[in-house]
C-alpha cells in the first residue's frame, strides 16, 4: 500500500489523554472522537487533518490508558499510519486490532518536518520525501499483526477465521 500524506510531527510520550481527552469519552461515535483527535497535543490537528496524513512521533507513543478510542479518533480522522520510535504496548495492540498501521522507526522524527508531505510504502516499509532526497526504513510489522491489520482489524480477521473453522 502506498500513501502520500501530510506529516504531523509530535514528540516523545504522547499519552492517550492528549490523543483523546477523557472528557469526550462518554460519546462513542467515531466522528465525535475524530473531532477532538490530538486535542491535547495540537489544537489544529482535528480541523486540518486530511485522509492519508501520517503521524510521526518519538518514543512511547500512546502511553497512558487502555482507551482504544485513541486509535479510533486517529483512524476516523483519516490518518493512514502512525510512525514512532516506539509505542506503548496497549496502544500498539489496539492499533493492530482496529486496523491502523503502526510502524517503528528510529529516525523518521528527525528526517521529516511537520507540514511537509511524504510518500509511505507500507509493504516495502519505507518512507520517502516528495523530492526523493530523504528516505527512512521502517521496522517490518510482525506477520501475525500485519495479517490482522490487512483484514481491517481483529473483528473482520476473527470473522474470516470463524468462517473457516465452521466450514
Amino acid at each position: 500500500m502506498n500513501v502520500n500524506g501530510r506529516i504531523w510531527l509530535f514528540g516523545d510520550d504522547v499519552n492517550t489523554d492528549l490523543i483523546i481527552p477523557g472528557r469526550y469519552l462518554d460519546n462513542y461515535d467515531p466522528s465525535h472522537l475524530a473531532a477532538h483527535a490530538m486535542e491535547g497535543a495540537n489544537k489544529e490537528f482535528a480541523s486540518k487533518v486530511s485522509p492519508g496524513d501520517i503521524v510521526i512521533a518519538g518514543r512511547n507513543f500512546g502511553c497512558g490508558s487502555s482507551r482504544e478510542q485513541a486509535v479510533t479518533a486517529l483512524k476516523q480522522s483519516g490518518v493512514s499510519a502512525v510512525i514512532a520510535r516506539s509505542f506503548a504496548r496497549i496502544f500498539y495492540r489496539n492499533a493492530i486490532n482496529l486496523g491502523l498501521y503502526v510502524l517503528e522507526c528510529d529516525d523518521a522524527d528527525s528526517v521529516f518536518s511537520d507540514g511537509e508531505t511524504a510518500m509511505l510504502d507500507i509493504d516495502a516499509h519505507t518512507m520517502c520525501s516528495d523530492d526523493g532526497s530523504r528516505r527512512v526504513n521502517l521496522t517490518e510489522i510482525p506477520n501475525h499483526a500485519k495479517k490482522i491489520i490487512d483484514s481491517g482489524g481483529l473483528i473482520p480477521h476473527l470473522k474470516s477465521q470463524i468462517g473457516k473453522r465452521d466450514h
Partner: peptide, 12 residues
C-alpha cells in the same frame, strides 16, 4: 490491560 476490541476476541 488490553483494548475493548481485543477483549471481544477473548469473549469469543
Amino acid at each position: 490491560g488490553i483494548g475493548a476490541t481485543e477483549m471481544a476476541g477473548v469473549w469469543a
